[in-house]
């Protein structure tokens, strides 16, 4: 596969089967990610960000159905890898920090035991002493004291737990890491340190990262590209300075506007009126139509095409590329 970007997603669809309905969580999602990119994914709660991440990792729950035209990573087709091959690349080449980080560890084993399991899963000949030293060093980078290794998960604070999971994702120096809402329990100082560490890894080791977050401030601090998702669809994708500071899509505009800022006065912050559409129905026209304040008649029934303006992609009838 010549000239393939580092990661290419094309027409990824993921739906969850429920008893009497099916939730279409990701709809026809396409985007390219180059090596060394830090891509932020932002979007309303429930719009399929975590689902997409799990899909890339092929870790979807059993009631999920994934289909795609292309899903490639570093020259490999993720779609037709079998469980063994997947296991080989997970953690080692591509790793993820789950949003449910706080729930992912076993409550009855010490942190060290669980981290050691991940270490030996890929390189079995590391003695405990060395692993301990390695982990202590790793913990230092994300501001975690080494005594955490001897504690049980329930004895950690939310942010400590999150950082343990971040450390776990870094163990094998993967080529790509997906961070799913990893700063939710981190204070600004630790968050700053983590973001600096991510930047350093990108610069020194050519790491590629996807950062799923609700915090546009975080996107602004570390990412060079950002994808805006809404109800499973990609609405806008491009460089941060284009998308955040001169957004084209009405949803992105509204999202940026509802972000509270410290430096601005204390006026009432407003959300976007309306709510996410019912994801169990397929959408006919533009997915954002019901809440859009600049909608056209056309938007109701005709799905907008993706307009490409250089490296800025938008899905809106008002924008012609």
């Amino acid at each position: 596969m010549l000239n393939m970007p580092f990661m290419r997603l094309k027409k990824v669809d993921i739906s969850y089967k429920l008893e009497n309905a099916s939730v279409k969580a990701v709809r026809s999602f396409s985007c390219d990610i180059e090596k060394g990119d830090i891509v932020g994914i932002v979007g309303e709660s429930g719009s399929g960000k975590s689902t997409l991440a799990l899909g890339i990792m092929r870790l979807l729950p059993p009631n999920a159905l994934l289909s795609a035209e292309i899903m490639s990573f570093d020259g490999k087709n993720i779609l037709n890898l079998n469980q063994d091959e997947l296991r080989r690349i997970r953690w080692k080449e591509i790793s993820i920090v789950f949003q449910k980080a706080m729930n992912a560890l076993s409550p009855v084993h010490k942190i060290f035991t669980q981290m050691y399991d991940v270490i030996t899963a890929h390189s079995s000949d590391i003695p405990k002493g060395r692993a301990y030293k390695m982990l202590t060093e790793l913990f230092g980078k994300i501001n975690l004291p080494s005594k955490v290794l001897n504690m049980y998960p329930h004895e950690l604070s939310g942010g400590m737990m999150q950082r343990v999971m971040i450390a776990m994702s870094l163990i094998h120096n993967p080529k790509m890491i997906i961070f799913d809402e990893v700063t939710t329990a981190l204070d600004v100082i630790t968050q700053g340190q983590l973001l600096d560490e991510i930047k350093r890894l990108v610069k020194e080791f050519g790491l590629t990262a996807i950062i799923i977050t609700h915090d546009i401030g975080v996107v602004n601090e570390v990412c060079n590209k950002v994808a805006v998702m809404y109800a499973g669809e990609l609405l806008e994708y491009g460089r941060v300075k284009d998308v955040i500071f001169s957004p084209l899509h009405p949803y992105t505009k509204a999202l940026v506007k509802s972000h509270p800022d410290l430096r601005i006065g204390n006026e009432l912050i407003k959300g976007i009126p309306g709510s996410l559409p019912d994801l169990t129905y397929p959408s006919k026209g533009c997915i954002f139509y019901p809440r859009c304040d600049v909608r056209l008649d056309l938007c109701k029934d005709v799905k907008p095409k993706i307009s490409v303006l250089g490296d800025h992609i938008v899905k809106c009838h008002r924008i012609q590329g």
């Binding site: 309303e44 939710t184 972000h259």
Partner: peptide, 17 residues
């Protein structure tokens, strides 16, 4: 306790209000 930490700006505004 960190009750809006996983909400995006627009939903968060609504929930805080």
């Amino acid at each position: 306790d960190e009750c809006v930490s996983m909400l995006d700006a627009s939903v968060r505004a609504e929930v805080l209000n």
